[in-house]
Amino acid sequence: MVNLIWAFLAVAGIAYAAFNGTMEEVNKAIFSTLDEALMITLSLAGVLIFWLGLMKIAEEAGLLAGLAKLFRPVVKRIFPDIPENHPALGYILSNMTANMFGLGNAATPMGLKAMKELKNLSGSDKASRSMITLLAINTSSLTIVPTTVIAIRMKYDSSDPTSIVGATILATIISTISALLIDRYFYYRRKRAMRS
């Protein structure tokens, strides 16, 4: 499916540009995006290198295992396929915690490391059940304090920059719970399809 979406976006864009005289913009966008992608990867590399180093210390010091133990009842329900005491659990929890506090650039490295651990578990190039669940949690966002949005509101002189926090938390809770339910629904559908 991703192949189709990827090709469609580019093909439809170029076709649209051909009929609407925006080919110049398309040209510019192609080359500026190459730079942009490289810059994003580079800054992501810095963050990755730092956090994965720090988290390796946390893992060896037993902090991740502690975190995993603390939240085991909840996480076991969300990720029933991951064996107990597997290092993936610690990284998944660090990813979720960092997300909740709005530490996006700490959350990504831990999420990626968690994915890597999950791949060690499944050993295939197909997305496993736990991978899809972790992805669903991350795409629905877990932010409790939307720091970036508050900063923008402050910049444009909001009389109450944090007034949207309650509404955001409510929307986040709903979107995360639905993400988990939708994920479960597709899992059971896959299972049924496999049996028949």
Partner: peptide, 29 residues
């Protein structure tokens, strides 16, 4: 990013789940 980093080629239902959850999230907001 997440699947690229570990070389997942077959994404299963991941995209459908993610986009449907977005739809619910946007309607909820």
């Amino acid at each position: 990013v997440y699947f690229g980093a570990i070389g997942i080629k077959r994404m299963g239902d991941a995209l459908k789940v993610g986009l449907l959850a977005d739809l619910v999230g946007i309607i909820a907001s």
